[in-house]
Simulated assay, not measured.
Amino acid sequence: MATTTKTVYIKGKRSCGVCQSMKEAGLSLGSLFLCQDCEQEIMRLEPGEDAYQTCVDALKRLWN
């Protein structure tokens, strides 16, 4: 199955909802901004890894 990558570019920097870094490129998911670095990290994480739960908790903010 082919995968596609879409990046939304915005004017100015925003704070990433996972790492809290100020970045220009990334995804806007509802009220959450996700930088490219965190997007790539999430894609490679496996359940049980230390950073996995941190990412899950950050993504839960989409529905809050």
Rank of each mutant, 00 (worst) to 15 (best):
residue 9 Y to C: 02
residue 21 S to H: 08
residue 25 A to E: 03
residue 18 V to Y: 04
residue 47 P to T: 02
residue 58 A to D: 08
residue 15 S to W: 01
residue 31 S to D: 13
residue 38 C to I: 12
residue 30 G to W: 02
residue 26 G to Q: 01
residue 15 S to A: 13
residue 12 G to T: 01
residue 55 C to L: 08
residue 64 N to A: 11
residue 56 V to W: 07
residue 20 Q to S: 07
residue 53 Q to Y: 08
residue 4 T to A: 07
residue 36 Q to A: 04
residue 44 R to F: 14
residue 13 K to W: 09
residue 59 L to W: 12
residue 36 Q to N: 04
residue 43 M to H: 13
residue 10 I to E: 09
residue 2 A to M: 11
residue 28 S to V: 13
residue 37 D to H: 03
residue 37 D to S: 02
residue 2 A to L: 02
residue 51 A to K: 13
residue 34 L to Q: 03
residue 10 I to W: 10
residue 44 R to K: 10
residue 30 G to E: 00
residue 9 Y to V: 01
residue 13 K to T: 15
residue 2 A to F: 05
residue 4 T to D: 01
residue 27 L to C: 06
residue 32 L to G: 12
residue 48 G to Q: 12
residue 20 Q to C: 12
residue 33 F to D: 13
residue 56 V to C: 14
residue 55 C to S: 12
residue 55 C to N: 09
residue 57 D to Q: 13
residue 39 E to L: 15
residue 27 L to R: 12
residue 3 T to D: 00
residue 40 Q to C: 00
residue 33 F to M: 12
residue 25 A to H: 05
residue 49 E to M: 10
residue 24 E to T: 15
residue 60 K to W: 14
residue 49 E to A: 10
residue 4 T to F: 06
residue 62 L to S: 11
residue 26 G to L: 04
residue 35 C to K: 01
residue 10 I to K: 04
residue 15 S to D: 08
residue 57 D to Y: 08
residue 4 T to G: 05
residue 26 G to W: 00
residue 38 C to G: 04
residue 26 G to Y: 02
residue 18 V to F: 02
residue 22 M to D: 01
residue 40 Q to N: 00
residue 60 K to V: 15
